[in-house]
Design a binder for these strands. Structure first.
Length: 585
RNA sequence: GCGCCCGUAGUUCAGCUGGAUAGAAUAUCGGUCUCCGACACCGAAGGUCACAGGUUCGAAUCCUGUCGGGCGCGCCA
């Protein structure tokens, strides 16, 4: 309908150009009105033309309307306010929406706008050193919803989790497990200050290793700690100590045995993360290991490619990537003076590989604390000859949890570390998924745990789900009254739906495809969340004002068609958000 | 100090590629169940869109500055 009006305006404006009233064709904007007093659609075109035509906006608008071709879909076009042209659509158009929804069912609102473009969406990618916490939850919910929205609008999306299984943190994890393992044999060893000290799962993994391998990795305390530097607890440096301990572990255990402990930690934690996400309704097509980048020589390859392009310079024994050439604030080290590559180097290789795997668009969802990293990654992509525009980096702000009006502290140190799993257990997956995407992602968010848990109208999730359940309940009632719903009868009598509540509901239903499109294109799932609340509100208001199960068979079936169409859209929208649409509550 | 994000009703937030009287929810106050689920509906009240300039027919929206909050500025990951 929007396109239709744009086309009509286009024709009218062309005539005006031909008659030299205006010189150039401007971009035409038509939008749905936010108020029924302004008709169904509106354009500000006359106001944007006022200057070049040297006329008042209202005068231009009159000219435009005069030349507007007649169309059965448009019943009226009128000038309003400072010079808006408001369009009123024929009733048949809005009635048609109900038929469309009932026919297209779960596909209503979907489009082919993406044209099958291959998109990679990378998100969460938390270090596999422990369970996901509530901060990761927002990225997970946001990413999964964006993926669903993009799939609904014709993109081919792969979700990917980048597993940081090669860094120093992973070695710290392995050593932490090993020390706990040794301690379980009553070997008196101090736990490293910089290790994963209070994490319960470390004990569990150590115990599993003990069960599987018994004493295979046992060493005496003397051998383990001899000649190590002093740890922080004795006034030393925690970083130096843990690095020395890692080296010691490798020497004593040998490469293979060290790897067994390392892998036990990695696979156990990764399996936990994976299950956690699945229960949260977040599924990844790919789990991409950072370690394989090095194993396949891709990091060396990426560095060489930068070298050949002339963007590498040696300074003080290290290799620097000249990212300032591409707008970064400063150049970045990619190979240290000790010959090892930095995290940034593997990230360059990783992003290069994304493009080489054929993705036409690459989207990364990062925590907002990584924003300083955006420029250098884009710089690297440009330097490697790819277009940095193909990479979109979306930053998600932190969520603060509130319980009883008080902010829940969330540091690992304070011991009140809140995991995603704990959150799900407390408020449920539906509420968590909805609350996370209810806000714009660049907006700091206050997550009210009490509200998310409450089963009342305060809680938008229940409010929307209740609307869905209520419609289901009407259908149950219908059966109990020995009545049958006749969709065809309903469709033939849609013109009887003339109540204000009914036309408002239809207008809202018709807006759904636009909302999906906009949510997907702008990566703003919160638009859909808000839309669903508004739709539920109209349904509840309608329900309270009118009866559906009435004597008049024709009107009854028309009304049932309308509420079933509403149920369909509620269900479609909730599904995209990863929230269930229950039949009973 | 520099950079990025944010500042809208008591509170939590929409609205931001400039458009009509700045909207919801919640809290507060007042109504609505002999009637398909009151997990709902209807109404009232609540605003210097942080502040100050600028751009123009028009600014919550764009630009500049100030103030306030968050985050980032490693040969860490």
């Amino acid at each position: 309908m929007k396109q239709k009006i744009e086309a009509l305006l286009q024709q009218s404006l062309q005539t005006l150009v031909n008659e030299n009233i205006i010189k150039t064709l401007p971009a035409i904007q038509v939008s749905r009105t936010r108020d029924a007093r302004f008709g169904d659609f509106s354009s500000n075109i006359a106001m944007t033309l006022a200057k070049q035509a040297a006329m008042s906006p209202r005068d231009i608008a009159q000219h435009i309307i005069n030349y507007l071709p007649a169309d059965p879909a448009v019943t009226k076009a009128e000038i309003a306010g400072p010079g808006f042209i408001n369009f009123y659509q024929a009733e048949a158009r809005s009635l048609d929406v109900i038929r469309q929804i009932l026919q297209q069912k779960t596909h209503y609102g979907h489009s082919q706008a993406g044209g099958g473009e291959r998109v990679q969406l990378e998100f969460v990618s938390a270090n596999p050193t422990g369970p996901l916490h509530v901060g990761h939850g927002r990225g997970a919910a946001y990413g999964a919803t964006l993926a669903a929205l993009m799939r609904a609008t014709g993109y081919e999306v792969d979700c990917e989790y980048y597993v940081n299984d090669a860094g120093r943190q992973m070695n710290i994890l392995a050593v932490s497990i090993w020390i706990r393992y040794l301690q379980s044999f009553d070997i008196k060893l101090p736990f490293p200050s910089n290790g994963y000290k209070s994490e319960a799962y470390i004990f569990d993994i150590a115990e599993q290793i003990k069960q599987a391998h018994q004493t295979k990795f046992v060493q005496t305390a003397e051998v383990v700690i001899q000649k190590l530097p002093t740890d922080e607890a004795e006034g030393g440096d925690r970083e130096l100590y843990i690095d020395a301990l890692i080296t010691r572990a490798r020497e004593l255990l040998g490469k293979d045995n060290y790897q067994i402990i390392f892998n036990a930690g990695l696979s156990s934690i990764l399996a936990d993360i994976r299950q956690d996400l699945e229960e949260f309704g977040v599924i990844f097509e790919n789990w991409y290991s950072e370690q394989t980048l090095a194993d396949r020589g891709l990091i060396t390859q990426a560095v060489e490619q930068l070298q050949q392009a002339g963007y590498i310079e040696e300074r003080q024994g290290a290799q620097w990537f000249l990212s300032t050439r591409f707008g970064d604030e400063k150049d970045r080290v990619i190979i240290r003076d000790n010959g090892t590559h930095t995290y940034f180097a593997s990230d360059i290789a990783y992003h290069l590989d994304k493009f080489q795997r054929g993705y036409q668009r690459v989207i990364n969802i990062w925590g907002a604390d990584h924003h300083g990293y955006v420029a250098r990654v884009k710089a690297a992509i440009s330097a490697l000859g790819e277009s940095a525009d193909k990479l979109t980096i979306l930053l998600v702000q932190f969520a603060n949890l509130y319980r009883h009006g008080e902010r829940v502290p969330m540091s690992t140190r304070s011991g009140s570390f809140v995991t995603l799993r704990q959150l799900r257990e407390e408020v449920g997956t539906d509420a968590a998924r909805f609350f996370y995407v209810m806000r714009k992602c660049e907006q700091h968010m206050d997550f009210d745990l009490d509200l998310a848990k409450s089963q009342s109208n305060d809680n938008p999730v229940y409010y929307i789900q209740y609307a869905h359940a209520r419609i289901c309940s009407v259908m149950t009632q219908l059966k109990e009254k020995q009545l049958q719903h006749k969709p065809d009868t309903g469709n033939k009598n849609l013109h009887k739906l003339t109540e204000k509540h009914e036309t408002e509901l239809m207008t809202k239903l018709a807006a759904y495809p636009d909302i999906i499109h906009k949510s997907a294109c702008n990566a703003e799932p919160h638009l859909l969340a808000h839309y669903l609340r508004e739709l539920a509100n109209l349904l509840h208001a309608y329900y309270n004002a009118h009866h559906f199960i009435i004597e008049d068979k024709n009107l009854r079936n028309a009304r049932l068609n309308l509420i079933l169409a509403t149920r369909q859209v509620l269900s479609n929208g909730l599904t995209l958000l990863g929230v269930s649409a229950p039949e009973k509550m």
